[in-house]
């Protein structure tokens, strides 16, 4: 399910190729470990997050119900995240990226990417 996202190893971050997404994965050296967004009780927490370009964000689903992380324009789309599944994405360029869960469209969040 998560085969095309990044994998984390102890002490360092190895970045696999992001096969999809409007924002391309950066070379490993350019990726900064970033914050995490928890998916709990049908909500993204924090709902809004601000990061620098090139920062990796990790979403983790803690619900028993599957969710997705999908940009409003659907260019970035995770697979279905079952309980404990993670989705990782690197935001390369500046901008405001709204996203939602395609299974539960009332679940929304925003990533602000700022230098």
């Amino acid at each position: 399910m998560m085969c095309w996202s990044t994998m984390r190893f102890s002490g360092c971050i190895v970045v696999a190729v992001l096969a999809l997404g409007m924002l391309q994965a950066q070379a490993a050296t350019a990726v900064a470990a970033g914050p995490t967004v928890e998916i709990t009780k049908f909500a993204f927490t924090p709902k809004e997050i601000t990061v620098a370009p090139g920062t990796q964000i990790v979403w983790t689903n803690h619900d028993e119900t599957p969710h997705t992380v999908t940009s409003a324009d659907k260019q970035v789309k995770s697979a279905a995240l079952d309980t404990g599944d993670r989705f990782e994405h690197v935001f390369a360029s500046e901008g405001d990226f709204s996203y939602f869960c395609t299974l539960h469209p009332f679940m929304t969040g925003v990533v602000h990417v700022r230098k």
């Binding site: 709204s98 996203y99 939602f100 395609t102 469209p105 009332f106």
Partner: peptide, 8 residues
């Protein structure tokens, strides 16, 4: 046809 913030 799920769109952000709305019903299907």
């Amino acid at each position: 046809n799920f769109k952000m913030g709305t019903m299907t």
